[in-house]
Structures are given as C-alpha cells and as structure tokens.
C-alpha cells in the first residue's frame, strides 16, 4: 500500500508527518520514500546508516556521424529541439531531451544510439530502528526531476506499507510523486496560503482519482478555514497537530517529535492507526 504525504504549499510539515508516522510504528514494516528530490530532507530525521548510492541517468541520443546522412529525420520528430542539424553536423542538447527515443527509432541509418546523462543519485539505507529509507537527490543545476522521482518510486514494494514524502506544488514533480498512490494524506496549515494550496492539491488528487484525508498542522485552535473547506469537500480531518515552540525546536535540530515529546508519540501512534484504517478502505474502494 502506497500512502503519499502531500501538501501543495511548501513547509507545512510533510516531512515531519512522514518521518514521525514511520518512526512511531516500529515493526509495522513501513518503508519511506523521499520523492522531494529537489530538496530531500527525510534522511536528516530518520538518519539511515550504511547508505548505498547509485547515479541515476536518463537516456539521451548519441549520433554516429560516420553513419549519418544528414536526412534531418531526427530533427523533425524531436518536439524539444534537443537534436538538430546545422552546417553538416548534428548537434544534441542533452538537457532539453525528454528521453522519448523518437530520434533513435526514426533514424533510417541506425546512426543514433542511446547514451545516458546523470540526473542525480538514488540513495538507500536503513536506520537503527530498522526503517528503510530510499531517496533521490537531484543534481544541482538539473531541471528535470520527474524521471528521478519515477526511479525512486520504482523501488517501492507494493506489498509493504510505503510512505512517500512528496514535493510541494501541483505541477509535474508533485504529480509524478502522487500518481499510482493508494491514498494521500494532505498536511495543511490553517492560513489563507495553506488553504489556497490545499485546494489546488485536492483538485489534482481528484483528477488522479486518489482517495485522501487531511492533517492540520500548526493548529492555533482559532482559524477554521481548513475545517470549513474540508466539510464542504467532504474530506475527513484525521488529526490536528498544535504549533508549539518546543516542537519547532525539536524539528529544527533534525530530531523526531515522537522521540522527544511523549504527547507527540501518542498523537502520531493514533494517527498511524486511523490512517491505516482509512487507507485500507480507500484501497478497497479503488
């Protein structure tokens, strides 16, 4: 079962919720996948050991100029201007390439072969509590994160309970993380920004047909904006986590709330079991 923790707005506490949920259920066989490959942070909290690292690359074309007849078939099929002929040469622009392999397929001389370009790293390790973490780390300066997110997700064992920490936003990277999830847990803060971005993510999830529930983070006990919205949309609120300076300080040190604050352990344990119940039902519905 795949549960993706998402938010729309950045910094609402996705990673905090992901790592603390995973850490409060030792023995449940939870695996964590950090798909916020632009700025992965889960490893800071889970502290995996003996990490293995492998470079992840994507296919880009390589042209054998001895075979090329300058027919321009590759240039015509490429929608991304990633391959072009100029002055009896074929130029490629690997950073523009979407790896569709059209040029390779269309070349009548078989002059194009698949080469590769490194997008970033895939890192895996297990922490002292036995929680396995897999994450991607996009190379700085690289624009394309979705292929790396897909590679991280490819490591998911669908039979285990997998928590996916998604990137913020609602465009390609966030959608790449949410696709094929069985359930989405939305972390929202009760502010106008939080509400606006939550609504965008809910729209995306409806499109993707993923069942969902909400956790309100930094609840001040006053603002009802998220409650009102959730009631209108018929989305259940599974938990409310208060804002405390103590909690903020624990997170800022890269520590787990469930280890440092007993009350938080109770709340997260409760959230974990409610979430599992809902996600099971959501999975059935699908």
């Amino acid at each position: 079962m795949i549960v993706t923790i998402a938010s729309g707005k950045g910094g609402t506490g996705k990673t905090t919720v992901t790592v603390n949920l995973a850490a409060c259920a030792p023995g449940a066989g939870v695996q964590v996948f950090d798909c916020d490959v632009e700025e992965p942070n889960s490893h800071i909290f889970l502290k995996p050991e003996n990490c293995s690292k492998e470079p992840i690359s994507t296919m880009v074309p390589e042209v054998d100029m001895d075979k090329c007849t300058l027919c321009k078939a590759c240039e015509k099929i490429c929608q991304f201007s990633a391959i072009t002929t100029i002055a009896k040469k074929v130029m490629t622009f690997p950073e523009m390439c979407h790896s569709c392999r059209g040029c390779e397929m269309v070349c009548p001389e078989n002059a194009i072969t698949a080469s590769s370009r490194v997008l970033g790293d895939l890192i895996q390790g297990t922490n002292s509590a036995g929680i396995p973490l897999t994450w991607g780390e996009l190379r700085v300066g690289e624009a394309m994160s979705p292929p790396l997110i897909e590679k991280v997700k490819a490591r998911i064992n669908p039979k285990a309970i997998s928590f996916v920490d998604g990137p913020p936003g609602t465009s390609c990277p966030a959608v790449a993380a949410l696709r094929h999830s069985d359930f989405a847990l939305l972390v929202a803060e009760p502010t106008p920004f939080g509400l606006n971005d939550l609504a965008l993510t809910v729209e995306a999830l409806k499109k993707l047909d993923v069942p969902m529930a909400i956790v309100i983070n930094r609840d001040d006990g006053k603002s009802r904006v998220i409650d009102d919205y959730a009631a209108r949309e018929g989305i259940e609120i599974l938990a409310r986590l208060p804002f405390t300076r103590e909690a903020a300080a624990v997170c800022s040190k890269g520590l787990l709330l469930v280890d440092e604050i007993p009350e938080m352990r109770l709340r997260f344990t409760e959230l974990f079991s409610t979430l599992m119940e809902k996600a099971d039902k959501g999975g059935e519905r699908k």
Binding site: D36, E38, E142, A143, M144, P173
Partner: peptide, 9 residues
C-alpha cells in the same frame, strides 16, 4: 518557487 528544479532555474 521552492526547490531547485526547472521553475526555480
């Protein structure tokens, strides 16, 4: 935007 990817660049 947040991150370091395409829209940030």
């Amino acid at each position: 935007p947040p991150g370091i990817g395409c829209p940030v660049i």
